[in-house]
């Protein structure tokens, strides 16, 4: 089943330059796809279009998610809010409400599913709270449930954001540079959590990454962007340093952070249960 189907997507913020140019893209159910590219290449813009948070140009093509059109030619379709309940978004800046508790933030995932009046009053049933708690325990931060979101570390906040998508029951997770502001250890935990949700719940994941090594470790398929265009779409294993050098030219050093490290890095390790034990610490 096609989870994401994009054709002819154009977006220009300014007259003279297209931030997205004729993007065509299909993602199938259960895939975990990396989206890579230098900063400014259009990763965030693409993700926000898929979530229906940004509108394409008037000649901007069409985006369908789970077979439902979410936007077409610059118009968000009427069913967009319903489709959005199927899409969980994890942002680089965490996007939690920092003054609310972690549990409340995770319960927000249910807003699209419970009756509007009940959601607006913040009245959630015991069962719904338990569902949120079990999502928190799956990502390993249930011990912090009653803390305010801002008192969590970056990595914990990001896992709370993933717990929100789990509570939401999202069938597609869009993660926009979820690890860009995290240290390597927290980055691993967040990526492991996404990987686990993908494999255990068969949730489709599209994750944009600034660094290619994580793409290779966690995703079979990589989509590479440059200047708003998809310039590579294929197995991550084909992403050799030489290939990326060719693809990105002068920008490639930025993509690798440390170019030499890529070849010597240990190859992708499957995530075992014991790694997740670490994730709960």
């Amino acid at each position: 089943m096609l989870v994401v189907d994009i054709s002819g997507l154009n977006k220009s913020f300014t007259r003279d330059k297209r931030a997205l140019n004729d993007v065509k893209l299909q993602v199938r159910e259960g895939e975990m796809v990396a989206l890579i590219g230098a900063s400014g290449s259009g990763k965030s813009t693409l993700i926000r279009h898929i979530a229906g948070l940004l509108r394409g140009d008037r000649d901007g093509g069409k985006i369908a998610v789970f077979g439902e059109t979410i936007q077409e030619n610059g118009k968000i379709s009427r069913g967009a809010r319903k489709v959005r309940t199927e899409i969980g978004v994890v942002f680089q800046q965490f996007n939690l409400v920092s003054r609310l508790s972690v549990l409340t933030n995770v319960l927000m995932g249910l807003l699209g599913r419970v009756p509007a009046w009940r959601g607006s009053l913040g009245l959630f049933t015991k069962a719904e709270k338990m569902r949120a708690m079990s999502a928190l325990s799956r990502v390993g931060i249930d011990a912090h449930a009653s803390k305010k979101a801002r008192n969590l570390s970056g990595g914990q906040q990001q896992r709370a954001a993933i717990a929100r998508t789990i509570t939401q029951g999202a069938r597609l997770i869009l993660a926009d540079e979820p690890i860009a502001s995290l240290d390597p250890a927290s980055s691993r935990k967040v990526m492991n959590t996404l990987d686990r949700v993908n494999r255990e719940d068969n949730v489709t994941v599209i994750v944009s990454l600034h660094q290619v090594d994580y793409a290779k470790d966690y995703c079979k398929r990589t989509i590479a962007m440059r200047d708003g265009e998809v310039v590579f779409d294929g197995p991550s294993s084909e992403l050799t340093p030489q290939f990326l050098q060719e693809l990105y030219g002068e920008h490639s050093s930025e993509l690798f952070a440390d170019g030499a490290a890529v070849s010597t890095k240990p190859v992708a390790k499957p995530i075992a249960e014991k790694d997740l034990a670490v994730a709960t610490s």
Partner: peptide, 26 residues
């Protein structure tokens, strides 16, 4: 960003204000 985070869950406009805006300005 937090408002967008709420919107992304499929919340309606009023809920965006209640949970995304008001906690920030309270």
């Amino acid at each position: 960003e937090p408002v967008e985070g709420i919107r992304a869950t499929g919340a309606n406009a009023l809920q965006e204000v209640i949970f995304g805006v008001i906690p920030q300005v309270l």
